[in-house]
């Protein structure tokens, strides 16, 4: 008999700070810690979920706490990266009566939009956010291109919170899918090209 335990957690990285989107005490700042099993976020809330509807509630609840702001390009622009993690633990007792536990983890990462400041008209807080967003996106790109270069021995995971959290999901033994959205308008061709270039580089992981 196989038994499953499914847990969910949801965080965002806003201005290079990690926030728990499911905390009852509001979006709190959290720290990253290293353990021999990998990097983890200290005190991150996790919920045991039993049905798809439960999971959807957790996701919707967390979304309410996300940072969203209006720019000239999109009235509901995501201003943070979000990581929704689903942990599936299965335990099975084999014929010798031994208990086998397997743990699989699924990260769904919604990266904040890359943007040109001149087009979005960002100033003040929006501009500050954009600078951090672009910085962590370029670190992600850097990590990806270092991973694809066999001569490169140093991978700059530590340069941003995003790449640290995803460290074992990028280089380790994980199945990774990257979905890139592009707009069809000629007006956005420059951004479209940069998205396509970014995705092309990721292809070689």
């Amino acid at each position: 008999m196989k038994q499953y335990l499914v847990r969910a957690s949801y965080l965002e990285i806003y201005n290079e700070e990690i926030r728990d989107l499911l905390s009852k005490k509001g979006a709190q700042k959290l720290d990253l810690r290293d353990k021999d099993t990998g990097v983890y976020v200290k005190d991150l809330s996790t919920f045991v979920v039993k049905t798809p509807a439960d999971m959807m509630n957790v996701f919707t609840e967390g979304n309410l706490n996300r940072h969203v702001g209006a720019t000239n390009m999109n009235e509901q622009s995501s201003r943070s990266h979000s990581v929704f993690t689903i942990t599936v633990e299965s335990s099975e007792i084999d014929k010798d009566g031994e208990n086998h536990i397997r743990v699989g983890k699924l990260n769904i990462v919604d990266l904040a939009g890359s943007e040109r400041q001149s087009k979005t008209g960002a100033t003040g807080d929006r501009l500050k956010e954009a600078t951090k967003i672009n910085l962590s996106l370029s670190t992600l790109c850097h990590v990806i291109s270092s991973l694809t270069d066999p001569k490169c021995t140093y991978i700059p995971y530590r340069d941003s919170k995003l790449t640290r959290i995803l460290q074992d999901s990028l280089g380790g033994n994980t199945k990774t899918v990257m979905i890139s959205n592009v707009g069809p308008a000629d007006y956005n061709l420059d951004e479209t090209l940069s998205t396509l270039r970014y995705a092309s580089r990721a292809k070689h992981i």
Binding site: S78, L170, K175, M178, I179
Partner: peptide
Amino acid sequence: GYNGTIFAYGQTGT
């Protein structure tokens, strides 16, 4: 029991 990551990336508004 394996790990997996799905990234969504792209220009804002797409």
